[in-house]
């Protein structure tokens, strides 16, 4: 259980880190821009007289597209050097002069940075909530809390990924290159990769849409940023099928046709491996499996 001591020390250390508080301020600022602009009247908004009131879900839908980029960056910055920094400076030697195994180190660092990133994200959501209360938007508390927690889980996934790379790398530079590569892969390349894969399979194998459509979506949700996005959409709409299908296609008419085709192929509901719990499992998998994979390399390293 000595990872607990390491995690506690790591959090203690981070509490005095300018990076943590700087990034918390950035997150809070980004989440508060829209409500603050509404408060000071730069965005004119009043609830419609007839029909349902506009809730904070509307605001969260906008934030979703920002956070899906910003949270991975924050998590990477907070965690990519978690182990390599200690290795570069030599404090790892002090840590390992005490009775901790290397697994304790990876676990303790992972949990410590999880706590740190969760604190940063939750503080930002609390700050934004206060600002939102001063706007005409109707506060939908359940979805707000759910979305905040889901965003924290995205943070955990990228912290896990970053600590894993930090454990496997020899230097902070290597760890940074590794994590940034993953970020670019997930944020910019993954969608095109899946599109390419699907058309490749469609053109070269006899597989029909009844196989290719679920396969396409499954590969898509393996990407933690897309897993987050589709879970959030499912949270707002209560419609997992629409939330999964919305990951496909671009803007315009063509994208809409693709999505309609996907929805038609899937029929009434999504298979279990595309269900909300399955997608949530993907996020947890990234949070937990990559640190363990990193440990596997770290265990054999000469320090």
């Amino acid at each position: 259980m000595s990872w607990r001591a390491i995690a506690r020390k790591d959090v203690q250390d981070a509490r005095r880190s300018y990076w943590l508080w700087g990034l918390t301020v950035v997150l809070s600022g980004v989440l508060s821009i829209v409500p603050v602009l509404m408060m000071i009247g730069l965005i004119q908004f009043s609830q419609p007289q007839d029909g349902p009131a506009v809730t904070t879900d509307f605001y969260l839908g906008i934030m979703l597209e920002i956070l899906v980029f910003l949270v991975p960056i924050v998590a990477i910055v907070l965690a990519y050097a978690s182990i390599t920094d200690e290795r570069d400076s030599g404090s790892l030697k002090l840590l390992l002069s005490l009775p901790h195994s290397r697994l304790d180190v990876v676990e303790g660092k992972t949990v410590g940075r999880w706590v740190v990133v969760t604190v940063a994200i939750l503080i930002a959501f609390v700050v934004a909530a206060v600002a939102l209360l001063a706007t005409p938007l109707e506060f939908a508390l359940g979805n707000y809390v759910g979305f905040a927690l889901l965003t924290a889980v995205l943070g955990l996934a990228f912290v896990g990924l970053s600590v894993g790379f930090s454990a496997a790398a020899d230097t902070s530079r290597q760890a940074m290159i590794g994590t940034v590569t993953m970020f670019v892969l997930f944020s910019l390349v993954w969608g095109r990769f899946v599109d390419g894969l699907r058309s490749l399979l469609a053109n070269n194998t006899g597989l029909g849409p009844e196989t290719l459509v679920p396969l396409d979506l499954f590969v898509r949700i393996l990407n933690p940023t897309q897993a987050y996005r589709t879970l959030a959409l499912s949270l707002f709409s209560g419609d997992p099928l629409a939330a999964r299908v919305s990951l496909v296609g671009g803007g315009g008419l063509q994208g809409q046709f693709t999505r309609m085709g996907f929805a038609q192929t899937l029929g009434e509901s999504v298979p279990f491996y595309l269900s909300d719990p399955a997608v949530a499992f993907v996020l947890v998998f990234w949070a937990v499996a990559i640190p363990l994979a990193g440990y596997w390399v770290f265990e054999d390293a000469d320090l």
Partner: peptide, 28 residues
């Protein structure tokens, strides 16, 4: 780990944790 439970070690080319106090190091 069992060895390091019984041994006290002062490593070479180590570094301390800049942001923690001396007492926090010892508490750890």
């Amino acid at each position: 780990v069992a060895i390091r439970e019984l041994a006290g070690v002062l490593p070479e080319a180590f570094d301390i944790y800049d942001r923690l106090t001396g007492r926090q190091h010892l508490e750890f």
